[in-house]
Design a protein around this nucleic acid. Structure first.
Lengths: 345, 345
DNA sequence: CCGCTTTACTAAAGCGGTTTAGGTGATCCT
DNA sequence: AGGATCACCTAAACCGCTTTAGTAAAGCGG
């Protein structure tokens, strides 16, 4: 009742194990009649090569690993990941590769990295100086970084977060907003340190804000979820101290802010303008449609996969230039209205 | 420069390979001093057990496979998958399992199934009589089905699609709609056959419609994407022959319909009511917010994973009763307005 | 001081494939 | 006829780990 092995097929067909192996991997080395017989016997017996045995012997598994910065239940709550997987998937399927999701197991990514039987890794949001990078180095598996700092020796795929963020902030400033709130992405992993992405976006926001004469800015950290956005809105100062514009580092949080604002009786964008980041598909369909910074997520996945596959083929590759971002102006932002006279002055 | 193996560690520490293996897997079998020494040497050398070798020897890989009915780029375009992964992920991480995505490679799921080094499979939308089921049988790997027909010998996790669809159709009928369009899910895989899910939903719609006296119904197939919804709307009869209510089997398609309708100058829900299916998170934030059939997607993933893990532990499990669905009435449906008098009669 | 259990460790046999290095005949060439 | 070539197939080593069976030394009761 146990699994059919190559030896079973060999003896059933009256040939050596080698012949069976050849039948599948080097058919031209076999005579037509034996080839046919072996294949038929193999099929009749329902033989399928044991993947692990094959991987051990050939030193390749036909799988690439995606290193997740956080638990799957967190990271998949953000549509960003689904988009990225589309890009990765295209290339992987083209090259007959399957995709292994590698989240931190038992709190540690390192352990998970060791367990993973893969030919290459794509890492999301890991800093070049994170300790797991050293583990990767030691195992010596080709790796491509996404949303990291292009420091180390690994090819890195990035978008121009800074410019995107700058454009977003500039947009609000141009509309006359002076008191802004920034919803910072939470640090991935345990460390307090911001992710490279968050740091770059923050730099972009701040450079625009400072360039406009440094009006007041209220910062707070918000996870990448609608409910985090709701909480963020509720943590904002109320009344006349409420920021008139919100720069969210994710669309999800931005949607949460809009929703909470509307629930509090405010009108978006008239009472409060909101800008997201990422331009996930649903941003076009929200109420009101979200003004946000577009980044080519699917393309990012495609490029990362392409790079990784090339590295796996032994080619050496350089980090491409960061992909460009662009501000998509929809309905969640408008010019700052004068404060209602009777209420303020 | 090649990978450091257990033999390297053994000789460096002056012990046998067995001792090194014990150090990691049966530490209690070793004396304290040797244990420490071995572990230290292993760490210094940066030793990590080769996953495939380990898998071959232990006959378990610490990985579960998710069988996708279609290419990753298609299936991840539907937020449904992301939701499901959240549920799967929770359980998998709890049990230190990683997740392998197994889409059809080179057009064939069967080939991909063989390649996959996993301890169990979760299959999405596969019919019990699909040929790949036989492959699964032969390999003899524990398997749990999601969105299938509970026929075979496999545990199956389902939701009550029929009741959900019935409620959706009944809702439109109760609002006075008589001429409805149904957007049928496309067949997964190549065969013409409907997926079990599509069949059940259709049955639910039709039973309600027939129960109300069989008004006219316009059916057409629409993929699970916004653009498919757009195309579907455009394929509907125009003018007075246009259905006043649309039953979409997915939220994505429903959103596409709403968007296309609005682009065509219609008001949703006043001119046309739209009901989705699934209640993916974004449905709450669309404009107008989508009336849809809620199904507990994350829970579905959790339960499937739990069942699979139990099966992998040798326990025998039964299919649970289908999870219940419920109609979530939001803003995309309203009672049928009388046809403008001057235009019709 | 002897047999008996424990403790601490090892040799070697798998796990199920791939691949290298031949070994047959049969065919070809001169 | 005899060596070279070729087409076809096989024995055995190897991939890197786990695990069974077993050994040597130490502990121990009598």
């Amino acid at each position: 009742m146990s699994r059919v092995t190559i030896a079973d097929v060999a003896s059933a067909a009256g040939v050596s194990k080698t012949a069976v192996s050849f039948a599948f991997n080097n058919p031209e080395k076999l005579g037509t009649t034996t080839l046919e017989r072996v294949l038929r016997v193999a099929h009749d017996l329902g033989y399928a090569p044991h993947p692990a045995a094959r991987a051990l012997s050939t030193r390749r598994s036909g799988t690439i690993g995606v290193l997740m910065p956080q638990r799957l239940s967190i990271v998949f709550a953000n549509p960003f990941l689904g988009e990225l997987m589309q890009g990765l998937g295209e290339l992987c399927e083209e090259h007959d590769l399957t995709v292994l999701l590698v989240p931190p197991l038992d709190g540690s990514l390192e352990g998970a990295i060791r367990q993973a039987s893969v030919d290459g890794f794509i890492s999301l949001g890991l800093n070049p100086d994170d300790p797991e990078m050293e583990t990767l180095n030691r195992i010596g598996i080709p790796t491509v970084l996404i949303d990291s700092d292009a420091a180390g020796s690994y090819p890195t795929v990035n978008v121009d977060d800074t410019a995107g963020a700058h454009a977003a902030a500039q947009h609000l400033l141009d509309l006359g907003h002076r008191y802004l709130a920034v919803l910072v992405l939470p640090p991935a992993r345990d460390h307090v340190q911001h992710t490279p992405t968050a740091a770059r976006r923050m730099a972009g926001y701040l450079s625009a804000i400072e360039g406009a004469g440094a009006p007041a800015t209220f910062q707070l950290t918000a996870g990448i979820s609608v409910s985090a956005g709701v909480r963020a809105f509720e943590a904002l100062p109320k009344g006349e101290h409420r920021p008139t514009g919100v720069l969210a580092m994710s669309d999800m949080a931005a949607i949460g802010v809009m929703s909470a604002a509307q629930a509090a009786g405010l009108r978006v964008p008239d009472d409060i303008s909101v800008v997201g980041f990422d331009d996930i598909p649903m941003s076009a369909w929200t109420n009101p449609a979200l003004t946000t910074v577009h980044q080519p997520i699917v393309e990012k996945g495609r490029i990362a996969a392409r790079l990784l596959i090339q590295r796996m083929q032994g080619k050496s590759v350089d980090s491409p230039v960061p992909l460009s971002t662009s501000l998509v102006i929809r309905q969640s932002t408008t010019s700052r209205k004068e404060v209602v006279v009777g209420r303020n002055v």
